[in-house]
């Protein structure tokens, strides 16, 4: 493999890791606050559809982005209503959201565009263009560093940079601010937050609102950045891989970045090479696709340190003495 190919694979890794990273950080906010969110997949899917649909209709990707975020927020709201307000089972609510999104996106797409459950291909202002960073062209000729900067770092859409900047931002919010302290506390010991006079419900809704915002970005990126338009089930399990990455990352922002890059790399390799030939022994592409989940099971089995989830995760908060 030469340098150019390596850069291409890594470039593709960054693109593929972006929706995972956004969804993973979304899940991180939610689960750190004690709300297990298996509905990341559904929220991303809804956001992907509405961003593509609105972008197609208006011709503005920014309006599309807003629509995508709004759709994910509505989904988050449903999850919050079911699992926080009415103290329902968070897993069931999440699964319901996945089914809802899966059905409703195709249904509306068919009703609006009559193209077999997809949106028209987005063109021009309907997509996020790649941004060329300053000096990228000028430095292109410099050996090693030039192509690295030009290929890998420059030339992504704005949402990619947002996603990567979200990592330090998330870390800072969680560990340096009052909101972060309370958010982590409510996922560990909601009774401590409640007796300290802070609203458990308020904090948890704030957390899932952030989760909605980030899954909205993730979905919009899928349909308007990574690809040009919505097709049915286009999230293709990314929400679950993001959950796996979250466990892999032990619910920490920086680890989430590394986990998503690793899973993104696996996807990039699978995409580029299909079946990998290792000296006569062929690794089928399905193995690469399954690897994130296998790695997660290995982690959960406790082979690579212990992954301890937030203690109050999955439990609706009921006051008691």
């Amino acid at each position: 493999m030469d340098y150019a190919t390596l850069l291409q694979v890594l470039d593709s890794t960054v693109r593929l890791a972006t929706p995972l990273l956004l969804a993973c950080l979304a899940g991180l906010f939610s689960e750190r606050a004690g709300i297990v969110d298996i509905g990341l997949e559904g929220k991303m899917l809804a956001a992907a559809f509405f961003s593509a649909a609105i972008a197609a209709i208006t011709g503005s990707v920014w309006l599309g982005l807003l629509a995508g975020i709004a759709a994910a927020l509505v989904m988050s709201g449903i999850h919050g209503l079911a699992s926080i307000t009415f103290r329902g089972n968070q897993l069931i609510s999440g699964v319901a959201i996945n089914f809802l999104a899966s059905g409703i996106t195709v249904l509306i797409a068919q009703d609006w565009f009559s193209q077999g459950g997809r949106t028209p291909s987005l063109m021009g202002g309907g997509r996020f263009e790649s941004i060329t960073l300053p000096f990228a062209e000028a430095l292109r000729g410099v050996p090693i560093i030039g192509p690295l900067y030009y290929e890998l770092i420059s030339g992504h859409s704005i949402l990619v940079y947002v996603a990567f900047l979200m990592v330090p931002l998330t870390w800072w919010i969680l560990f340096r601010t009052r909101f972060g302290l309370r958010l982590r506390a409510v996922g560990e010991a909601p009774e401590a937050v409640d007796t300290a006079g802070v609203s458990v419900v308020g904090l948890r809704f704030a957390a899932i609102a952030i989760c909605g915002l980030l899954t909205g970005l993730a979905g919009a990126y899928l349909a308007t950045g990574l690809q040009a338009g919505f097709v049915r089930e286009m999230t293709a399990g990314r929400g679950y891989i993001a959950l796996a990455a979250l466990i892999f990352a032990k619910w920490r922002p920086w680890y989430a970045l590394y986990a998503c890059l690793l899973f993104g790399l696996l996807q990039a390799v699978a995409l580029r090479y299909q079946n990998i030939d290792l000296g006569g022994f062929i690794i089928p592409v399905q193995v690469m696709d399954a690897l994130p989940y296998i790695l997660t099971v290995v982690i959960l089995a406790g082979f690579v340190g212990k992954a301890i989830p937030p203690r109050a995760g999955g439990e609706p908060y009921v006051k008691e003495r």
Binding site: F175, R176, T177, R178, F179, G180, L181, R182, R184, A185, E188, A189, E191, A192, V193, D194, T195, A196, G197, V198, R311, R321
Partner: peptide, 25 residues
Amino acid sequence: QHFKLVQNFTVLENIILGAEDGPML
């Protein structure tokens, strides 16, 4: 009777939880 503490927070973090002076920790 059953303490309302966050087990994996430090003592200091538990003390200020809900009684912080401002948005920064």
